[in-house]
Design a protein around this nucleic acid. Structure first.
Lengths: 200, 200
DNA sequence: GCCGCTATCTTGACGCTGTAAAGATTTCAC
DNA sequence: GTGAAATCTTTACAGCGTCAAGATAGCGGC
């Protein structure tokens, strides 16, 4: 019981792993209050730490949201990968599966989705965030290439998936949102396929 | 020069037409600072009035943003109408033209677009705002009906237009955004048409 | 023509926010 | 063991939204 920190006992000073604790608290706050209601002091409070503690690890609120966004893009990719894993290995099917994962992510974590695609608060010139978001874009680009598509196809596929995700995440498109699960996916698949029609 | 108020001289009390002056100031503030940087006191300052003056006309910040959003939906419809007016009267061409107007709006007023489709700050249960946003949805629905489309088609067309608008408005889809004007429209038209493929 | 009423706007105050500066405490290098 | 650095707290300040109270203007009744 010297300087060693067991388990989760947060001693007065030197939390131990405050950086990731703050990130976790920030994610919960984001989910509960949304991007527009996000408060740095509230995050600190939730992590059981003084209001100025985050500054040392993230600089300011933008820094924290930037780190959160970078992390979010990898989760975003994970959501797509989850759908791809249980889909047909055919390139076109993989592309559609990625679109479904795109939509899953927007429905599961609407606030995080909005942070990634509809907010100015993160610093998108930050190297770590840029790397993460570029990775997401490259993934799409590779899938389109594998399916023999061009620039236009990439734009169309991205726009269609993004439009569905954003509208559904904001509670619109009720004619689709009201459908029970198996039927909803069928409709979404049919719509996603329109973005990249079979050649001819 | 009794109680009559000429022109734009804002006397001490009783501005004359403060409500619309505040709306105009709010729109400028929104365009400059974005939804996330929007400040009620800043709007009051810009309108040359005390920080609590907006309260009497709009209640609170949400009230002002709600009124701004309602107005925004009519401008949104106007942007679509402008494109429709100089397009072929054929229902499908009108549908595509509306999509182009959708995108025009997002590019011309990105902050207002975000207020309408990517913010929780307006009160979307407000009757005036609900009427305005419903009008926008009905317009789309009517166009799809005129072109002989069903629920799925409406969802697909809306999602495609929205996805393009949102991504372009956020500076993504650079392969499209970088195109000179005539070529860009051609690409957008080609993509929009994919959402509602010709029967057969 | 004057009086009171009401709508409109201002002033002042409160608790919240983010951020900066300075102080306290712990760990680490040597 | 001691100085230096890293980590966290405390304190302070300006800006924010909102509420309550006060000031000023226009308007109807007489």
């Amino acid at each position: 019981m010297t300087g060693c920190m067991d388990d989760e006992a947060k001693r007065g000073y030197h939390h131990g792993d405050l950086r990731s604790a703050l990130l976790a608290a920030a994610e919960e706050e984001l989910a509960e209050r949304g991007v527009e209601g996000f408060s740095l002091r509230q995050v600190a409070r939730r992590a059981g730490v003084s209001h100025a503690a985050p500054a040392h690890h993230f600089g300011d609120a933008q820094g924290l949201l930037t780190a959160l966004a970078a992390d979010g893009f990898y989760r975003f990719l994970a959501a797509q990968a989850a759908r791809e894993a249980r889909a047909d290995p055919d390139p076109r099917a993989q592309l559609v599966a990625a679109g479904l994962g795109y939509i899953d992510f927007a429905l599961d974590r609407p606030a995080l989705f909005r942070l990634l695609f509809g907010s100015d608060r993160p610093d998108f010139t930050d190297p770590a965030l840029d790397t993460a978001s570029t990775a997401a874009f490259f993934h799409l680009r590779e899938q389109v290439d594998a399916a023999g598509g061009a620039d236009v196809d990439a734009a169309a596929v991205w726009a269609m998936a993004h439009g569905l995700a954003d509208l559904l995440g904001n509670g619109r498109l009720k004619s689709v949102l009201g459908l029970p699960q198996p039927a909803r996916d069928e409709v979404l698949v049919a719509i996603l396929q329109r973005a990249f029609p079979a050649a001819g």
